[in-house]
Amino acid sequence: NKFNKEMRNAYWEILLLPNLNEQQKRAFIRSLYDDPSQSANLLAEAKKLNDAQA
């Protein structure tokens, strides 16, 4: 399933972002589970926040 693969990839990438705190990571991951079809958008948002907090 395409969404499962995308979601899994986004999950691990979000977990490994160094500048997000645990609460932020949990919020993004919760959103991933709520709507896996938004994986790419959520990952992009997480990366943007990660860069902003660098």
Rank of each mutant, 00 (worst) to 15 (best):
L49E: 06
D34Y: 09
A54P: 08
L15A: 03
N9S: 05
P36T: 11
K25N: 01
L15E: 02
P18T: 05
L15Q: 06
A27W: 05
S39V: 13
A40P: 11
I14H: 00
L49K: 11
L17D: 02
N19Q: 10
R8E: 15
A10V: 08
I14Q: 00
L32Q: 01
E45Q: 12
K25T: 09
A52L: 08
F3P: 15
I29M: 03
P18Q: 03
D34L: 13
Q24A: 14
K25Y: 03
N21D: 10
A52N: 10
N41W: 07
L43A: 13
A52I: 08
N1G: 12
L43Y: 03
L32Y: 00
N19R: 11
A52Q: 09
Y11T: 04
Y33L: 15
A46I: 02
L17M: 09
F3G: 15
L42Q: 05
L32F: 03
W12T: 05
Y33M: 09
L16A: 11
N4I: 07
K25S: 03
A52T: 12
S37K: 14
Q53S: 09
N19P: 00
K47G: 03
A40T: 06
K5V: 01
Q53T: 12
S39T: 07
D35K: 13
E13D: 05
Y33F: 14
F28A: 11
D35H: 06
L43N: 05
N9I: 14
M7N: 01
S31R: 09
I29W: 06
N4M: 03
A54F: 06
A27R: 09
Q24G: 03
Q24T: 05
L42V: 10
S31V: 08
A10M: 03
L42A: 06
N41F: 14
N41Q: 12
I14T: 02
L32K: 00
Q38I: 09
A10R: 02
S31N: 12
N4R: 02
K48H: 07
Q53I: 12
P18W: 03
S31A: 06
Q24W: 07
F28T: 10
L16E: 09
N50M: 03
L49G: 04
A52D: 14
K2Y: 04
R30I: 09
R8K: 07
L43W: 04
E13T: 13
Y11G: 03
P18R: 09
R30V: 08
L49A: 14
E6S: 02
R26G: 09
R8S: 08
L49S: 07
A46G: 05
N19T: 08
Y33P: 02
L32H: 01
L43S: 14
L20Y: 00
E13A: 13
A27N: 14
L15T: 06
D34N: 07
L42W: 09
S37T: 13
E22L: 04
S37G: 08
Q38R: 11
E45P: 01
K5D: 08
N50S: 04
D34S: 13
S37A: 12
R8A: 13
L16T: 06
K5L: 00
D51R: 15
I29P: 00
D35M: 08
D34E: 09
N21M: 14
N4K: 02
S39W: 15
E13Q: 13
A54D: 14
S39I: 14
L32D: 00
I29G: 03
L17G: 01
A40Y: 05
N4L: 14
Y11F: 08
R26I: 12
N1H: 04
K25F: 04
D35L: 06
A44T: 04
N4Y: 14
S39F: 13
Q53M: 09
L49H: 11
L32W: 03
K5G: 02
P18S: 05
Q23D: 10
E13N: 14
N1R: 03
E45G: 07
R8F: 15
K2G: 15
D51K: 09
I14K: 00
L43H: 03
P36H: 04
E45W: 08
L16Q: 13
K2V: 03
Y33E: 02
S37L: 14
S39G: 03
K25P: 00
N9Y: 15
Q23Y: 14
K48S: 07
K25H: 04
N9W: 11
A27F: 11
E45Y: 08
E13K: 15
E13W: 08
E22Q: 11
Q23E: 09
D34K: 12
L16D: 08
L20W: 00
P36G: 09
S39K: 11
Q53N: 09
A40L: 14
E22N: 13
I14W: 00
A54I: 13
D51S: 11
N50V: 03
L42I: 07
A54S: 07
N1Y: 00
D35V: 07
F28N: 01
L49F: 09
A46V: 05
E13R: 13
L16S: 13
R30D: 04
L20V: 13
L42Y: 07
K47R: 10
L15S: 09
N9Q: 15
A54R: 09
K48W: 14
W12M: 03
K5Q: 05
K2Q: 15
L49V: 06
L15G: 03
Y11I: 13
L20S: 00
R26D: 05
E45V: 04
D34Q: 12
N9V: 14
L15K: 11
L20E: 00
A40H: 09
N1A: 01
N50F: 01
Q24R: 05
N19D: 09
A52M: 11
Q23S: 05
I29R: 02
N50W: 01
E13P: 01
W12Q: 05
